Amino acid sequence: KKIKIDLKKGPEGLGFTVVTRDSSIHGPGPIFVKNILPKGAAIKDGRLQSGDRILEVNGRDVTGRTQEELVAMLRSTKQGETASLVIAR
């Protein structure tokens, strides 16, 4: 099931960490939400869960991207702006 979640970045950030699983010589594996932090946009919104697979960030497919690339995409969202995620659960 795909779910679109918009998180408005506040002073505590987006409020979640990510982890890559099953990376191989063929490229990075899928990226999942690792933890929801006690402060930040994710816990206020309440929909994002540990174990959700991140498919898109701000309309860009993240398949084949590294964890570092995904984190850079999320960090490029400025405070007060919205990060738009599509996740699979």
Rank of each mutant, 00 (worst) to 15 (best):
K39F: 10
A88I: 15
K34L: 09
D6Y: 15
T20P: 14
K44E: 07
P30E: 14
R75F: 06
S24G: 06
N35F: 07
N35C: 14
L7W: 01
E81F: 06
I54H: 00
H26P: 15
I43P: 14
K34C: 04
V71W: 15
P38C: 10
G59H: 06
K2T: 03
A42D: 02
G10T: 15
N58E: 05
V57L: 13
E56V: 06
L70T: 04
E68Q: 07
P38N: 08
E56K: 12
L85N: 03
T63V: 07
R47Q: 12
R53S: 12
G40L: 02
G40H: 02
R60E: 07
V33S: 01
K34N: 15
V18S: 05
L48D: 01
R47S: 11
R53D: 04
V19A: 14
N35S: 10
I5F: 04
R75L: 04
D22P: 05
E56D: 09
A42E: 01
L37T: 14
R53Q: 14
E68C: 04
I3M: 08
S84I: 06
V19D: 15
S76R: 06
L55G: 01
L14W: 14
T66Y: 04
V18T: 15
V19W: 13
M73S: 05
G27P: 10
N58Q: 14
V62Y: 04
F32L: 12
E81I: 03
V57R: 01
L37F: 07
L74W: 08
G29H: 11
K78F: 06
V18D: 01
L85W: 00
G13M: 02
R75G: 10
G51Y: 06
V18I: 13
G13K: 02
I5T: 01
K34F: 03
D52H: 01
V86L: 10
G51L: 06
V18C: 15
A42K: 01
V57Y: 15
L14M: 14
S50H: 15
Q67M: 03
E69Q: 06
K9S: 15
S76Y: 09
E68I: 03
F32M: 11
D61Y: 06
R65Q: 11
I25M: 12
T63Q: 07
G29E: 13
A88K: 15
D45R: 01
S84E: 14
K9W: 14
V57E: 00
L55N: 03
R47D: 05
K9D: 13
G40E: 02
G29R: 07
T82Y: 13
A72W: 05
I31A: 14
T66M: 03
G59L: 05
G51I: 01
R47C: 12
D6A: 12
R89N: 03
S84N: 07
I87A: 11
R21M: 14
K34V: 14
P28Y: 04
